[in-house]
Design a protein around this nucleic acid. Structure first.
Lengths: 238, 238
DNA sequence: CGTTCTGTTGAATACCTTCAATTCGCGTGG
DNA sequence: CCACGCGAATTGAAGGTATTCAACAGAACG
């Protein structure tokens, strides 16, 4: 776990001793470069392989993680083995921050969806930085607030009765985000199924039915939205 | 909205010019009494009647609320009219704090379940106090962290397949909280149904089945837990 | 004492799940 | 370069559970 190093390939400015992803992370917006450098110094780069477990539910949280590159899922596992994904996170996004700040255990599991590089930031060092610059605390407040909103949306979607509705809501969400009618899923379909609270079979059937109805076209991981109005009214329940 | 007053019946100490509930609110733990007094000064007491709407989704958030007495639900409403309760809050608990701090709109609706008295705290005043005492900000962080954990539990319960499982999980939660085998529901059964993501009919049937299985006994709003082991294994999925 | 809201029960329906079998995609190794 | 093999995705059939709608009973409240 002490494989500390400074990747060269991601430095755009010779004066910066930290990667671009760190600078763009929402958590660190508005922070002086000096502090970013400090964070980079107290952190350790962690390389994880696809499907590798990063932490498990119940484990004591001693640090927060920030994704430098790759993709990570945070999820709950029921005793029957069914998983419900809470977050899918990409470069620049932090995770494990809630229990870390509260000094508690992780409420869920985290696992890499792809080979990834993570910045592992021990809390003691981060708390010291918090005292130096209160804006870091406010950024953390904003982050938690954003997470709460995401959860509200997730809960809303999970309580929509039918799988096609949840799927339509999710696709429209992606459409808003990328502003494109052609959506390229950045996750496996089974992963998507777990995220919208369905089985892979149910997802497959939902896509097929929506295809038949002319709402969209599926080609592997690429989905063409054909009828936004129809999708929208479907998401809202007819 | 300017019905400011100082309720007499809740003052236990003549030197304090604010109610006991304010002192006990988790949000204000560790704050000097002077600041509590300030909060009480900038706030307004709001009386709401049962079923009265407090705020609606999409409304601009300018303040946060703290329940002095009574009961409030925070919920999402789908276009079909189905409601999903996010929180049920009692005396001393704040709500509306997330969008208020982020300067955004409310992501959900709030409505009084009982005649209630709320303390309405405009954000501008509260932010001023935050700058005076950073511990208020950390309390807010702790509050948001706790909310996130509640949501994780709610999501977990919603994705547990069967209604009886969700119900068992909720009842065991109440049992932990009150440490009693006799549980008196402080909410209507229909409200409970909306909270665990079910229809009143489904809840009724689930209770009946669990009654038949000897897990519990129902008498109006009073529920006797008869088989904790059985309930526990049910909640975990057999 | 009656009106209204809440809770219960029944029957029909719709949807998802489960399990099993098959196909597809893709990387590995021959 | 092709064949193999593994995991992911799809499809089918059977079964279970919640939903919906409607009617009724019960409790709360004025």
């Amino acid at each position: 776990m002490n494989n500390f190093h400074q990747p060269q390939h991601i430095m755009s400015d010779h004066k910066q001793f930290f990667p671009e992803q760190l600078k763009q992370a929402a958590l660190f917006q508005g922070l002086p470069l000096r502090q970013l450098s400090d964070i980079w110094t107290i952190g350790q780069v962690l390389k994880v392989k696809r499907n590798q477990t990063i932490f498990v539910q119940g484990e004591q949280a001693k640090a927060l993680y920030i994704i430098l590159n790759g993709q990570v899922k945070v999820f709950k596992l029921s005793l029957e083995g069914k998983e419900q994904i809470l977050h899918i996170l990409g470069p620049g996004e932090p995770f494990g921050e809630v229990p870390a700040f509260a000094g508690q255990t992780f409420p869920a599991h985290a696992q890499a969806l792809q080979d990834s590089e993570l910045l592992y930031i021990p809390m003691d060092g981060l708390l010291t930085l918090c005292k130096k610059d209160p804006s870091l605390v406010f950024n953390m407040l904003a982050l938690l607030a954003a997470r709460l909103r995401q959860f509200v949306t997730l809960i809303e979607n999970l309580t929509l009765k039918a799988v096609p509705q949840r799927l339509a809501a999710y696709l429209l969400h992606l459409h808003d985000k990328h502003d494109s009618l052609t959506i390229d899923l950045d996750i496996a379909k089974g992963t998507l199924a777990s995220f919208i609270g369905a089985t892979p079979e149910a997802l497959s059937r939902a896509l097929k039915r929506m295809n038949r109805q002319g709402l969209l076209k599926v080609n592997g991981r690429t989905i063409q939205l054909c009828d936004l109005t129809g999708l929208s009214s479907l998401a809202k329940g007819e």
